[in-house]
Structures are given as C-alpha cells and as structure tokens.
Design a protein around this nucleic acid. Structure first.
Lengths: 169, 169
DNA sequence: TATTGTTATACTCTATAACTATA
DNA sequence: TATAGTTATAGAGTATAACAATA
C-alpha cells in the first residue's frame, strides 16, 4: 500500500507544484485520519466537536452561535447541531445574552472544561507523536515556510475560498 | 530558547508540534477547499471522482474494482457508486475480465480520457497558482521535508492508520 | 430591513455488513 | 471457504433555504 497512494498520480512527471501538493495532501490526511480515529475510540467525539470546545476554552466569557459559526467556518445550522449534542452531554451551556434576546452565549461547563483539558492534552501528545518524523529544527523550518504559503492563500480572491458563502457586503 | 531548562524546552517543543500541525491543517484545507469548489463549478465533479479517473489514466489496461478500492483507500461499495456515476456519464466502462467472471476491468473511454486530460491540466494550473506563495527553491525544501514526515507516518502501527480496516492476514 | 438562531432538507463521502456469483 | 463486486444502510460533515423572534 505504501507506493499506491494519491501521490503516485504524478510520479511520472516533473511537475513540481503538483507533486508537492499531492505529498502534502497525503501526509495531512494521514495525520488527520489517525486523530479522527483516536478521538472517536478514546473520547467518543469528533473533530468538529473538539474544535468547538477548543474555541470555547480559549474564550472564557463564552461565544455566540454566530461567532462560533465564523470561527469554525461552517454555517449556523451546523453549530446548532453540535451545540445541542454538547449541551445534552453537559459539556456546554447556552446562556441568555444580557442585552440581545435573539442571541445566546455558549460557555463550557466546569465539567466540560475539565473533560476538554484532558482531551486536549492527549490530543497534543498525539500530534507530537505523529510529527515526530521532524526534528525541532525541521518543525521550525516547515512552520516558517507555511507562513509564506498561508499569507499567499489569505490574499486569494474571496470568491475562491472554501467554506460557506459570506454575503457580499 | 537555549536558556530554558530541559523540561520547559520539551514542553515548548510540544506546543511547537501543535502549532505547526494547526498551521499545516489550515493551509491544506484551504487549498483543498478551493480545488473542491472549482472542480464542482468548472467540471461538475468531485475529488474522489477525479482521483478515480486519475488512477485509470495511469493504467491504460484498466483496473479491477478491487484494485481501485485499494489505490483510493476506500471500501468497495464506494467504488461501485463512483464507477456507476462515471459509467452513466460515459467516462468509463466496465469490461468483463477475460478469465475471472467475478471481476470487471474498469477503463477510461476515449471521451473519458480526453475529458480527464482537460481537467487534469486545469487542475494542475490551480495547484501551481495556489502554491505560488512558495518559490521553486522553497517548494523543493518542503517536498524534501515532507518525505521525512511521510516515512515516519508510514511506519506507524497499522492499527492507527486512517482508511478502511484491512482484514488482518 | 437586517441579524440571530433554529429547523428541515439534501448531498458527498465514507464505513460496515449482508448478499450473490464465482473461484 | 475465500474473493469480487453489489446493495443497503448509517453516520459524519457540510451546505442551502425558509422561518421566527428580535434588533
């Protein structure tokens, strides 16, 4: 199986960008797949749920549904669904917004915060393990190189960008 | 950094891995999202369909369903579904296997090959454009660095790996 | 009128498992 | 019994659109 991945798609050619992209995709998907599997097996959770909790952990005052939707770059209906699950399980609560009665403030419960911290610490160990193919020096190099790519991607025309369509203006 | 004791250095490296992973994930997802959007808008197709065609393009004698399943690393039922679509659209055909009557050989039709070539060339231009944040020299660096990560990931215990569960033995 | 959030719905992608036909 | 492929089903994960309440 080692040689028969997506990357082999372009192996006959000398197309640098394409070969690089396929290798990048292969590596990222493999790491992501392991993390998804382990989140499910060890914590009975998923990446979007984990990401939502991670956002809340960084915002002790809580976040509105709208703000969560923007940060996770998915549409509101999905945030409603994930929040419903997490609230049922006692990890988060919706609190009434003090001044805007349309809005909720979603917060971690004490138990949710505690559970998330445990998950996050395990998750970080996984990432350390999975990226252990790189030395600290190499990690630093890749991190720097990715900064350049990231800034290039950020300057792309918005029409191309992934995620829900923002209303123009 | 050099001033820190071993313990904080280790912990700093841990955060390094996590930060690097999040940046890697962000960049990859952004590129992937753009490509998915454009495949849908410009060619009314999807990444798995594109990948299946790409495998067939590299195998002029065709591939069995089982072989496609292994190469795309998804289970057989999914290959049946994608192949059904592509066959309905005239891009591929199932041919009887000469000696094994259980098996099909899936091949590109002439029209499918032509259409795929057009898509693949456009797809490559997209990748070139999206990775233009890196110079040729930087692309080459990243490609080399990813080789190290890829080989580390390949040596992970199979139990962790993403994709369908292979029958042990 | 615009915004916040919910509901309903649909589509893609993927997995598991039961099944048929053949080896 | 084992394998190739199909079918059926389920569940993530995501989007769009219509809607109610409120701003």
């Amino acid at each position: 199986m080692t040689e028969l991945d997506l990357e082999s798609r372009a192996s006959d050619h000398d197309h640098q960008a394409l070969r690089l992209w396929l290798r990048l995709l292969t590596c990222t998907h493999r790491v992501e797949g392991v993390i998804r599997n382990r989140l499910r097996q060890d914590f009975a959770t998923t990446l979007p749920r984990f990401d939502l909790l991670a956002q809340l952990e960084r915002s002790p005052d809580g976040l509105s549904m709208r703000e969560l939707s923007k940060r996770l770059m998915v549409t509101g209906g999905n945030i409603t669904g994930i929040t419903d699950q997490l609230e049922r399980e006692g990890l988060v609560v919706r609190e009434a917004h003090p001044s805007d009665r349309r809005s909720f403030t979603v917060k971690l419960t004490p138990s949710g915060r505690q559970q998330f911290k445990r998950m996050a610490s395990t998750h970080e160990q996984w990432v350390v393990e999975l990226l252990a193919g790189w030395s600290a020096e190499e990690k630093s190099q890749v991190h720097g190189l990715l900064a350049g790519l990231k800034s290039h991607l950020t300057n792309l025309p918005a029409v191309d960008v992934a995620g829900p369509k923002e209303k123009a203006q």
